[in-house]
Each structure stands twice: as C-alpha cells, then as structure tokens.
C-alpha cells in the first residue's frame, strides 16, 4: 500500500500496480476495473457491519478472475459494487477509466446495460416471461429494434445451447437451463465485462459444467469475466484467483496451470 504515501493527490488507476507484481498497469491497456481502498459499511440499527474494509483491486481487459472466500467474507458486496448495483461507503472505483462517482443515475443504468452482464446465483429470470423475452429485455432497454432484438437474442440463446427452450417459461426449466438463459441475457448486449456471483451455487455438477463451459467460451472470445465461487474446481477455470477474508483481500495469484482455463469450444468432457 505504498501509494497511500502520495497524500491527497488522487491516484489514477493506471498508477496502481498489477496484483502479482508483474508489469505495471500503464504498460498494458487500461484496466477494466480499478478499485482503490473500497470500504462498505452496513448499518443495522445500532450495529455496524464492515463488509469491506479497504479493497484495492485491478482487473485487466480479457482476464478471467475467480473471487473466492468463505461465506460472509464480503464477496457479493464487492461484486455488487463492481456491477454498479451498490455504492461503496468509501474509496474510488474506475470502470474503463471513468470514475463511477461522476456518473448520474441514468448514466449508471446505461453502463449496467451496455458494459456489464450480471449473472446471479438465484438466476433472477423475470417470472411468467419466456426465455426469449427475458433475453430480449436488456436490448429493449438499449433501444434495439424488435427485429434485431429477436435475432440477437436467438443467437445468444444458441450460444448457451438453449434454442429449443426459447419459448419456455422460467418455471418450466431446470436450474441449469434457467442459469444458461440468465447467461444468455447477460451476454446479449455484448458487454465487455461479465460478472457472475456464484453462478453454479444452485446447480448440480453436470449443469455447473455446462454453465462454466459458456464462461470459458466468453473468456476465450476475449471478454473479461469475474466470477465468485467457493468451489475449487470452478475456480480452476480462471487464470487468476483472488481470495477474500473478512472484507480484505487475502491473496491474489495467477494460476500456474492456465490450460484448463481455455478449453476448446464445445469439447467439454
């Protein structure tokens, strides 16, 4: 944390060093995510809960990062801040070199819509709405015309292998199928950043593999993927693992064996 010595002078994200001590940030392309000293405090009546106690993290374009940690360690809180669903109590966050503090409500919703695809543990499909309509939704908010919307949604559903369930309602699908539809919805706007909070937490291992295969494909296609998990075999898909404990980053390491991270398309065992 040497940069704290800089005093009041605001720090640019490019000045932050990469986590594993490799090349400094300014020698690579601008990072997608740069967090500096993020804290988050929840107030429950009299009691204060410190969910994040000062997290600094830089994620470069095209990285596949797994965030691991025990339950209650602050992973979801961190993810919600990264996904612009929540705001930190203190600290600064640059997304694509833009300080998100400077974005108003409308701009935030636009960034969520165009740049970020969010996948939740509990799928979060809109009930009584078909798979196709769910996937079309982000495009509706993006103002895409209905014909193109339809084409792009069908393409996204095809990418996750859900073409045959296009007209099914969420309650007519298994958890794995719902999660794949949710992934299709997350990627339909072609976001550069895909965030997934325990996407396989409610899935059996077979479905988990299906879903992870999709993330692996997205990573292979150059998207930035940040994924929360507490399963080691899921974390193995990532090239970098960040461990969190009690609202602080415990460790941040690159996987030695990155071969697992780039399986070829559709050849999952």
């Amino acid at each position: 944390m040497t940069y704290l010595g800089n005093g009041q002078a605001p720090l640019l994200p490019s000045e932050l060093s990469a986590p594993d001590g490799s090349a400094p940030a300014e020698q690579r392309t601008a990072p997608v995510i740069a967090l500096r000293q993020i804290t988050k405090t929840y107030r429950l009546g009299e009691v204060e809960v410190q969910a994040l106690r000062g997290v600094s993290l830089v994620i470069e374009r095209g990285e596949f990062v797994a965030i691991m940690g025990a339950s209650g360690s602050g992973k979801s809180t961190l993810m919600n801040i990264i996904g612009l669903l929540d705001i930190p109590s203190h600290g600064r966050y640059w997304l694509d070199d833009v300080d998100v503090r400077n974005l108003d409500e409308l701009a935030l919703s636009r960034v969520r819509n165009r740049k970020i695809g969010f996948v939740f543990q509990s799928f979060n499909l809109i009930p009584r709405t078909t798979a196709l309509a769910n996937v079309e939704l982000p495009l509706i908010y993006a103002g895409v015309k209905s014909k193109e919307r339809r084409q792009r949604s069908e393409a996204a559903l095809e990418q996750v292998g859900m073409t045959d369930r296009m007209h099914h309602l969420p309650n007519e699908m298994s958890g794995g199928q719902q999660q794949r539809v949710a992934v299709a919805r997350a990627i339909v706007t072609n976001p550069s950043l895909i965030l997934a909070d325990e996407p396989t937490g409610n899935l059996d291992s077979r479905s988990s593999e299906d879903v992870m295969a999709v993330f692996a494909d997205l990573y292979a296609a150059g998207r930035t993927v940040v994924l929360i998990t507490h399963e080691a075999d899921i974390a193995q898909y990532a090239e970098r693992v960040v461990r969190v404990r009690d609202g602080l980053i415990l460790s941040d390491e690159r996987m030695v064996d990155a071969t697992l991270a780039r399986p070829s398309l559709g050849s999952a065992p």
């Binding site: 409500e105 919703s109 960034v111 819509n113 809109i126 939704l137």
Partner: peptide, 16 residues
C-alpha cells in the same frame, strides 16, 4: 420489487 431489481440490474433506466 425483485423484478424491478432485476430490470435495473440489466440496465433499465428510471424512466423505463
């Protein structure tokens, strides 16, 4: 409320 949260998470602006 949850549906509203989902819509906002995928980029629904306030006006929508």
């Amino acid at each position: 409320t949850r549906e509203i949260g989902i819509r906002k998470a995928i980029g629904a602006p306030r006006g929508a």
